[in-house]
Design a binder for these strands. Structure first.
Lengths: 254, 254
DNA sequence: CGCAGATTTGAAAATCGTCAAAAACCGTGG
DNA sequence: CCACGGTTTTTGACGATTTTCAAATCTGCG
């Protein structure tokens, strides 16, 4: 164990994250730091907690019989990894850190407590879970039905949206936290295909590359090419949601 | 509109479904019947409700720019379709009935009510959402990293588990609610490939086919071939969960 | 500078898709 | 019971995309 960073920075603070942290602190649950490329949880474990990412990146993945790997989800700060295992007998996927990171374990048993004392938190978790589902569906659509070239473009646009927190058509630089083998494992290609496609996109002027940084040059063109739609939930949308509640009588209109 | 069946049969009744129905009945929300192959919701709509399946099947799907389709999820009776759109600005996928079905709309605005008056229901929804996530992850793993033959086997085993409600290694007959084009859209193949693989599996004695019915002959062999693990949540696991809550002090042990 | 890992490149092979035609299936109506 | 029309499934030839394999090159870092 190494020391925690003195200050954990979080740009886009979720409204209820602070509340969750406060409760956990009362129970003496501490954030845990991990080094890069360390398994945080392994497929087949008994589910104990989910993990609120405080800083860094984590990905969930599954390994097949023949050793192939599918990366299922890239978790960012503010995300809750392992939510899918709530209520399961066995953990369905492994989780690994991408770079150094700090995570706060939220034991599943806490959900019962939240349920009676802080229903807002459960509602928040439900919304987070729904967002993850949407992203998974997007990934499945890309992997199942796009050719290699479009999958790579999809990946770039998706990372752009998730990392920057919004969609723009302006040029932007993103840092891709994966190497090319990992990219392949995420979108169902080999590292060789990923390399070829990235080079091709670079040759054609869609992107420029420097190490793991990618400059998106023709975002609008790429979005048009694969019909990319923004995911439609930015941080803070929970607040909007709360406002919507006021039109409760809408229920009657169904 | 045609008449509702007099009795809606449900074999595996979820513990909290009755409670949800009771609340909705008080709000005069009625189950809606749909004919076969009808769109219940369309991508881009404003999210209004989720849909509790009372009988029949529904699938969620997305359509790409070039007209290709990815089927994202097969919803069974007891499932809640559209949960992924909770909190989103726009609905992320379309939903279509597979055969006649009856569906109870649950307006998203109801979640606020549940949150304050029936936190158990929100917790239940959270668990349902988690289960859907697990299934999506399984699908993504199959589509992203398995060859065609293994994908078809995966599909058969998955349907077997979901339709029968449990995993066995004994032979069993299942009725596949999809045609081969739809199967292809679910696992990322063409109808032609699906046909070839099904014929091949039949020739090799793994399955026997009669119309849309499939007899699984060598379940254990097929499970071994693709390392199929059961999903690990049967109906009623919510009860187990409640019991787990008693070991609340486990929280301290993290 | 040298090493280890990551990326690029090219040729050959395998898988899967496309296309088109034939066959099978299914419900309907005579 | 059989004929009919529409849909679904099967089949085979061919082509395109992606993988595999292997070697070369590049990069970051001590």
């Amino acid at each position: 164990m190494f020391r925690l960073p003195d200050i954990i920075r979080r740009d886009r603070t979720e409204p209820l994250v602070a509340e969750i942290c406060a409760v956990l602190r009362k129970w003496n649950i501490e954030p845990i730091p991990f080094r890069s490329q360390v398994d945080i949880q392994h497929e087949g474990d008994r589910p104990r907690s989910m993990y609120l990412i405080r800083s860094g990146w984590i990905y969930s993945y599954a390994v097949l019989a023949d050793g192939q790997r599918q990366i299922l989800f890239l978790h960012q700060p503010g995300d809750i990894a392992g939510l899918a295992d709530f209520g399961a007998e066995r953990v369905s996927c492994s989780m690994r850190s991408l770079g150094e990171c700090v995570v706060l374990p939220i034991p599943f048993t806490a959900i019962a407590t939240f349920s009676s004392t802080a229903p807002d938190i459960i509602t928040y978790l439900l919304q987070k879970s729904a967002q993850m589902q949407s992203i998974l569906m997007r990934t499945l659509t890309a992997v199942g039905r796009m050719e290699a070239r479009h999958r790579v473009i999809w990946l770039i646009l998706m990372l752009h949206e998730r990392i920057s927190g919004s969609v723009t058509t302006a040029s932007a630089v993103i840092e891709i936290p994966f190497n090319q083998s990992e990219i392949g494992d995420l979108i169902g290609l080999t590292n060789v295909s990923v390399s070829k496609m990235l080079c091709q996109l670079s040759d054609e002027g869609f992107i420029e590359r420097k190490g793991s940084k990618v400059l998106l040059r023709r975002v609008a063109d790429m979005q048009a090419m694969i019909n990319y739609e923004p995911m439609g939930f930015s941080e803070g949308s929970y607040l909007n949601l709360k406002e919507d509640y006021r039109e409760r009588d809408a229920v009657k209109r169904i």
